[in-house]
Simulated assay, not measured.
Amino acid sequence: MIVDCHCHAGPGDGLSGPWDSDTALSRYLPRAARAGIDRSVLFASFHSDYALANAAVAEIVAAAPGRLLGFAFVHARRDRGRIAAMVQRAVERYGFVGIKVHRHDARISGEVCEAARRFRLPVLYDPVGEVAVAELLAEQYPDVNFILPHLGSFADDWAAQLALIDHLARHANIYADSAGVRRFDLLRQAVRRAGPHKLLFGSDGPWLHPALELHKIRLLGLRPRDEALILGGNLLRLAHLD
C-alpha cells in the first residue's frame, strides 16, 4: 500500500498565497490515483481557527472512508490551553490519526507533545529549518514519534537537511518525510545512514505533483521491502494502522 503522508486540504482564510487559501483536491486526487497512491494523509491549510479547519478536513476525510486519513492541525501558541481538547475531538469524533504543527505559526510546545503522548499519536512538525529541536524532542519525549517534513526544510536549506539526517540516525523517535526535497542525494544519504524505516513518502499535495514526488522514491533503487516501508509501511506503523 502506498500512503502519501503529507497533503493539505480544506478552507484557508489568509489569502496571502495557496498555503492559507481554500485548498481543493480536485486535481490532486486523480493524479494520486493515476500514480498508484492508495491513501493520503490530509491536514488543514494555514487558518486563523484550526478547530474550524479541522472540522472541514474531517468532512473531506469522511467522504472517502478508507482512502483518506486526517491529522489535527493545532497552533502551539494561539491554541494554548485547548490543544488536548482539540486533539481529543479530532481522535474521538473525527477518527484522526496524528497531529500537525508548523513553525510558521509557532514553535512546538510541551502541551502539543503531551497531547500526542496521551493519545498515542505521531506529530508532523515542520521546523522551517530549525532542526536542532529534534534533539530536545528526542530527549524529553522519547515515547512520542515526530515526523519532520521536507527533511527539515522546504526552503532547500542544505545545512539543516544534512543536520537532520544525523538526528534521524541517532534518535529512534525522529523521522522525516520526502516532500519537496530537491537534493536527491540527501534523500539517498538519509536512507543509507538512518535506514528506510526512518523516511516517509510525502508529496506536499495538492501544490506539488504526487507522481513526481513518488518517482523520487522509486529512483532510490531500494529493495522492495525497504521501498515499501517508505511508501506506506512507516506511516501505517506510526499511526497504529498496520
Rank of each mutant, 00 (worst) to 15 (best):
residue 182 R to G: 07
residue 52 L to N: 12
residue 168 L to F: 13
residue 49 D to L: 01
residue 77 R to W: 09
residue 106 A to M: 08
residue 207 W to A: 04
residue 19 W to H: 13
residue 127 P to K: 03
residue 221 G to L: 08
residue 43 F to V: 15
residue 5 C to W: 06
residue 216 K to M: 04
residue 51 A to N: 09
residue 144 V to T: 09
residue 9 A to W: 02
residue 204 D to K: 08
residue 78 R to P: 15
residue 107 R to V: 10
residue 155 A to C: 14
residue 211 A to S: 14
residue 186 L to S: 00
residue 70 G to R: 00
residue 24 A to R: 14
residue 24 A to H: 12
residue 189 Q to E: 03
residue 119 F to I: 05
residue 75 H to W: 05
residue 78 R to E: 14
residue 132 A to Y: 11
residue 228 A to L: 11
residue 97 V to D: 02
residue 93 R to L: 14
residue 29 L to H: 06
residue 125 Y to S: 09
residue 240 H to Y: 14
residue 185 D to Q: 14
residue 231 L to P: 00
residue 50 Y to K: 01
residue 242 D to F: 01
residue 88 Q to Y: 04
residue 209 H to Y: 11
residue 106 A to G: 15
residue 55 A to L: 10
residue 93 R to Q: 13
residue 30 P to M: 06
residue 227 E to H: 15
residue 92 E to F: 11
residue 176 A to I: 05
residue 217 I to H: 01
residue 118 R to D: 07
residue 139 E to Y: 14
residue 144 V to W: 04
residue 23 T to E: 03
residue 60 I to V: 05
residue 137 L to M: 07
residue 63 A to C: 10
residue 135 E to S: 15
residue 10 G to W: 00
residue 96 F to Q: 12
residue 197 H to Q: 14
residue 218 R to I: 10
residue 164 L to T: 02
residue 211 A to Q: 13
residue 162 L to Q: 12
residue 142 P to K: 14
residue 128 V to G: 04
residue 201 F to D: 02
residue 169 A to C: 07
residue 45 S to H: 04
residue 158 W to C: 08
residue 218 R to F: 12
residue 55 A to V: 06
residue 104 H to C: 08
residue 178 S to N: 09
residue 208 L to E: 07
residue 53 A to I: 05
residue 141 Y to D: 12
residue 8 H to T: 13
residue 13 D to C: 13
residue 169 A to M: 13
